[in-house]
């Protein structure tokens, strides 16, 4: 019979999960990492990472994640490709993970690293033009917009960085932000504000994405109510993230209103033996470097928890 019980299960194979996998493998814990699709998580969606230490020239998102996976594999991290569709956390017994193929695994301790995904803009036309001009990934889709004009929605780090990247392809990038200043890191802002191919539209929201078969324009509504139409062939949406928490017992984990999971400084949730790390946690800073840090901390907390089980059993 196939093995169905583990000391530790890690959900998700982004930066947090892969670091947890590395630490678990090196600790020789009886572990399993479950990733539903592409290993690497959200980092895959970005062309270049300039703020993860150890890479003085920066590194591509794909290369960084491939290296993280390879490093964990070197220590025999055990992983499978499967979607954890439901998690049950019984009061006394082992934690239960239901997989999409109908099978069931159990574990003594669990680390949730399921991360997050991009928010939709929630405007008319967005769904209809998905893949036909609407995008959430500059590195995937930028090259389809060579010598065309595109709009970027958002004003945080991701939006401004991706706007800058898109100028490699697009003739013009129009960044539309609902406030009158950017939230991105200062170096990121300076570069973008000095880029002649980025036009900024402040205090405005995109209220519709228009076109016939493909995107032809965005409707922009300013805070003062004025409506205008800007011709663009592409719209890139970077306005924050939503946690990947489907199937998690959110009440039991006391998730916040946004669906993020609160943890203490040791990455422990309110349920004994359940840790969380990375973007799924209720916290302010969501970066690769702290996702990795939390992944490591979570494994050390899992080890402490497992040690208490040995004492009582």
């Amino acid at each position: 019979m196939a093995k169905t019980h583990y000391q530790l299960i890690i959900l998700g194979g982004g930066p947090a999960g892969l670091t947890a996998g590395l630490y678990a493998a090196r600790a020789r814990l009886d572990h399993l990492l479950i990733e539903k699709g592409a290993t690497g998580g959200q980092v895959l969606n970005t062309h270049w990472i300039d703020n993860y230490p150890g890479f003085p020239e920066g590194i591509s998102g794909f290369d960084l994640m491939e290296k993280m996976a390879a490093q964990a594999k070197r220590f025999e991290m055990n992983s499978i490709m499967n979607d954890a569709v439901k998690v049950e956390l019984p009061e006394k017994a082992a934690k239960i993970i239901h997989l999409d193929d109908g099978s069931r695994l159990t574990c003594d301790s669990l680390i949730i690293c399921t991360g997050a995904h991009a928010n939709n803009a929630g405007v008319p036309g967005e769904d209809r033009f998905l893949g036909k001009g609407v995008s959430y990934c500059g590195t995937c889709d930028g090259p389809f917009f060579r010598n065309l004009d595109v709009a970027v929605i958002g004003g945080g780090n991701t939006a401004v960085q991706e706007a800058e990247y898109l100028t490699k392809f697009a003739r013009k990038v129009i960044l539309i932000h609902r406030r009158d200043s950017l939230r991105a890191a200062k170096v990121v802002q300076e570069k973008a504000l000095a880029n002649p191919n980025i036009e900024f539209i402040w205090n405005s929201r995109v209220t519709a994405i228009c076109g016939d078969k493909e995107v032809e324009a965005v409707e922009v509504t300013a805070t003062d109510g004025q409506v205008s139409r800007r011709p663009v062939q592409g719209v890139f949406v970077f306005i924050g993230i939503t946690p990947n928490n489907a199937g998690l017992p959110l009440d039991r984990l006391r998730a916040d209103v946004g669906g993020f999971i609160p943890v203490d400084t040791e990455c422990r949730t309110c349920v004994p033996g359940v840790m969380a790390a990375g973007d799924i946690c209720a916290k302010k800073v969501r970066q690769i470097v702290n996702a990795c840090g939390e992944g490591a901390v979570a494994v050390l907390s899992a080890e402490s928890y497992l040690a208490t089980l040995e004492h009582t059993s």
């Binding site: 592409a38 998102g61 794909f62 994640m65 590195t139």
Partner: peptide, 11 residues
């Protein structure tokens, strides 16, 4: 040149 595409390869 598409990271997510390459990562989808094993899938």
């Amino acid at each position: 040149w598409c990271g997510p595409c390459k990562a989808l390869g094993p899938v």
